[in-house]
Structure formats: structure tokens, C-alpha cells
Design a protein around this nucleic acid. Structure first.
Lengths: 183, 183
DNA sequence: GATTATTTGATATGTTTCATAACAATTATC
DNA sequence: GATAATTGTTATGAAACATATCAAATAATC
């Protein structure tokens, strides 16, 4: 280590410029334009060029919006994907659904418990293989799923189209899919 | 609920076709082409069109590759971003760095403890504001950061360019940045 | 056909990540 | 000088993610 143990940090108010007579945003402008480094925005450095960083940031934003759009149905992205996959793949068991979604079997148990307690789906012992549970949506589950799809299309994906434009949205999806597959 | 409590699930081997005389992949081909639904790949349904789902999948892949590429230095994406931001913003305190990265201050403490215990950075009491800690990279920290940047460029981002192509990679970054900001 | 190995769902458990409340020390505000 | 706000910290909890292990059921092997 070559660094000394104390340093001066310029925090918020620089000097004693601040006075009630001057508007707050004017003060900020003066500070930002002064010789002192702007107190607000930090340099992002090479972080802006790091795809992984921006990817994560975007993912959090998109998930937040998803949750908000589908809020009246109280479905997380993961729960929605489970319902969707059960519906699209009748006759499949827990392991198959979980694996396809990248969910580990032990963690899938509580997930299903929750959905089943809300009567959105049911586990049924398979007659062929009495070890496995075939997953089936209830009527309520199908209804919720249908409503969720509508909300996602009309709110969530619509907003994505607004921000990106339909062509860009499609291009983005293609590239992300390529990454998810071939990377 | 309108579903009965038992159902038949077709699992692996259909009928008694299996025999040692037939090659395993031939059997699989026969099964896939038969009337029975393919036992392997599940229908992804509308999931393939859900941007959030693909986004998450891609993000996990990219982070995995990041961790792998920078493995000799034992840096997580989060740790790397902290080192980078400290280096790019001398004189800033914990709260400022944490906020910029979207890390909550309480969670940032252990993070810094870890980096400091590895002697990659130091907290220094500010002389201006004795509440705050100014964060500074040690020489070791700067060295590790420089090595990490090299590994990321030569391995990680290089691979991204291979898979996507430079133009697509740039376009992807632009769109993700737009989402992270405006969404 | 009995023995061994594998698969399925489940439990227990641990780690990591993320979020909230509260506190002492310090500084800002009035 | 009393009160409020900020900084780093601790404690704590929830959620997401991962591993080992188990009983029941089935498949594979001898």
C-alpha cells in the first residue's frame, strides 16, 4: 500500500456560496461549471462500454416493469414463465418444466407449492410412472395466465415498443436470443 | 378445479422398441419422428417472444463468461465495477460509489470489507467530513484492475464480438443502454 | 426374478443477493 | 445551542440460488 490514511473529500456545498437569495438549481449550475469536479454525477469509466453491466441494468428495469404491469395478478416473471410452460406442455412433470426454465428441482418445489396453494395449478400422480407429478393448470390458472398475457402485451411489451421501436425491439430480441444460445 | 387427480405421462422409453441392436441416436430419431410428442424438447410458447425472459437468460450467460474470463483474478462483475468506479472517481465516498452502482449502502459495507481485506482498496477518513470514507485503490488494486481490463477485452468482449459481430454488439449496447435509462 | 442402479419429488441446509430499520458519530440547519 | 440530516455500520429478514441426501418408484443387470 502506498496511500496515506487520510484525504480531503469535497462533498455537497462548496465554500459558503449558498444563500437563500439564489435559486437552488442556479447554485448547482454554478458548482457544476466551476473548477471543482461536479458533485453529482460520477464518471462511469469503461463501465458504459461493458456489455454485461448494461445488460444487467436493463434486465432489472425490464423485470421491474413486468412486475408493475402484471401487479393486479401478483405474478413474478418466474411464476408467469412456469404457468406459461405448463400450459404449453401438457403431460410434463416437474423435472421437465423446471429444467427447461433453468430452475433446480429442489427450488421448484416451493415454487409449485405456492402456485398450488393459490389454486393456479395441480400436481397429479402419473399413472404411467408413479414417481412423477404431471403438472396441470386449473381453470383459475388458465384464466390468470390469459389475463397476464393480455396485460403484458397491452402494457409491458407496448411500452418496450414505445421506447425502442418495433424493429429495434425485434432486433434486440434476436441478439439476446443468440447470446442466450450460442454464448 | 376441473381437473381429475391422475393422468398418464409418457416419459422416456416409448413401448418396447428399445433393443441393444439399434443405435441409441437412431432410436431417438424414431421417437422424435413418431406420432408421440417428442420426449426431449419442450415448447417454449410465447416465452421466446418475451423480451424479459431472453434478457435474463442472456445476462446470466454473459455474467458466467465474465466470471470465467477473469477467473485468475477472482473478481465478480460487481467487484470489478466497484474497483473501476473507485479508480475513475478519486475522492468519492462510499455512499456516492454505492449509489452510482445501485448498491444499497448497508450491502456495500461487506463488499468493501472484502476488497479491503484483499488489499485492493482502502477506506480513508475524510478530513473535510469526518463521517465519510474516501475510497482509494491500492497499488495492488490498480494492478488487478488493469489486468482485469485486459482479460475482459482480450477474452470476454472479444468473444462477444465473435458471436455478435462488432456492429451488432454496438447496436445491442445502445439499445440496452436506452432501456436502462429511459425505461 | 432378485439385486443393483437410476430417477422423481422432497427435505434440509447453506450461500449469495437484495432490502429495511435502527444506531452512533458527525455535520448541517434553524 | 437545539434539532434535523447524513455517513458508515450493524442487525435482520426475505428471496434467489446451489448441494447433499432420502424414500419411493422404476429401470437395468445379472
Amino acid at each position: 500500500m502506498t496511500v496515506s490514511k487520510t484525504t480531503a473529500s469535497k462533498t455537497t456545498a462548496s465554500k459558503a456560496i449558498a444563500s437563500k437569495a439564489i435559486a437552488p438549481d442556479l447554485i448547482r449550475t454554478m458548482q457544476s461549471n466551476g473548477r471543482e469536479p461536479a458533485a453529482d454525477a460520477l464518471q462511469m469509466g469503461e463501465l458504459s462500454e461493458l456489455l454485461g453491466y448494461t445488460l444487467k441494468r436493463a434486465q432489472l428495469k425490464v423485470f421491474d416493469d413486468f412486475i408493475h404491469c402484471v401487479e393486479p395478478l401478483q405474478l413474478t416473471p418466474a411464476q408467469f414463465s412456469v404457468l406459461l410452460l405448463i400450459d404449453a406442455n401438457p403431460g410434463r412433470n416437474q423435472t421437465e418444466i423446471a429444467n427447461t426454465l433453468g430452475i433446480l428441482r429442489p427450488n421448484f418445489v416451493a415454487m409449485l407449492d405456492s402456485l398450488e396453494s393459490r389454486e393456479l395449478c395441480v400436481r397429479m400422480r402419473s399413472t404411467n410412472d408413479r414417481r412423477s407429478h404431471v403438472l396441470v393448470l386449473t381453470d383459475k390458472g388458465r384464466t390468470i395466465l390469459a389475463r397476464a398475457k393480455k396485460l403484458i402485451v397491452s402494457r409491458h411489451e407496448a411500452r418496450l415498443n414505445e421506447v425502442l421501436g418495433p424493429e429495434n425491439r425485434a432486433a434486440l430480441l434476436r441478439m439476446l436470443d443468440k447470446l442466450a444460445r450460442d454464448f
